[in-house]
Amino acid sequence: MIEITAYIISFLVMITAIRIIIGPTIWDRLLGYNLVMSKILMLIVLFSVIFEKSYLLDIAITYSLIGFISTLFIAKFVKDRGKI
């Protein structure tokens, strides 16, 4: 069951990547980036269940704590017209 879920979610990551590529504005690309990040977080948790390795969850914790900073900075960069 977990393996099938991992397959479906990685297929959905591929579909979400299309939104990043065709997105007409930069905010659509940021939205797709956010979705891809949360799906990768799910995939890491699922693989730590599959491999039964508890230390993969530490990567997931780091990923969720730090992965949002780049999105915030790009959004602020676009809003302020080139100033961070």
């Binding site: 905010w27 940021l30 939205l31 956010n34 949360s38 977080l41 914790i61 969720s64 704590l65 949002f68 999105t71 915030l72 959004a75 602020k76 676009v78 809003k79």
Partner: peptide
């Protein structure tokens, strides 16, 4: 962590 942070990111994109 995700419940705290994910709405902040979405709000930031919408505000931008």
């Amino acid at each position: 962590i995700v419940v705290l942070i994910n709405p902040v990111v979405t709000h930031s994109i919408g505000r931008s």
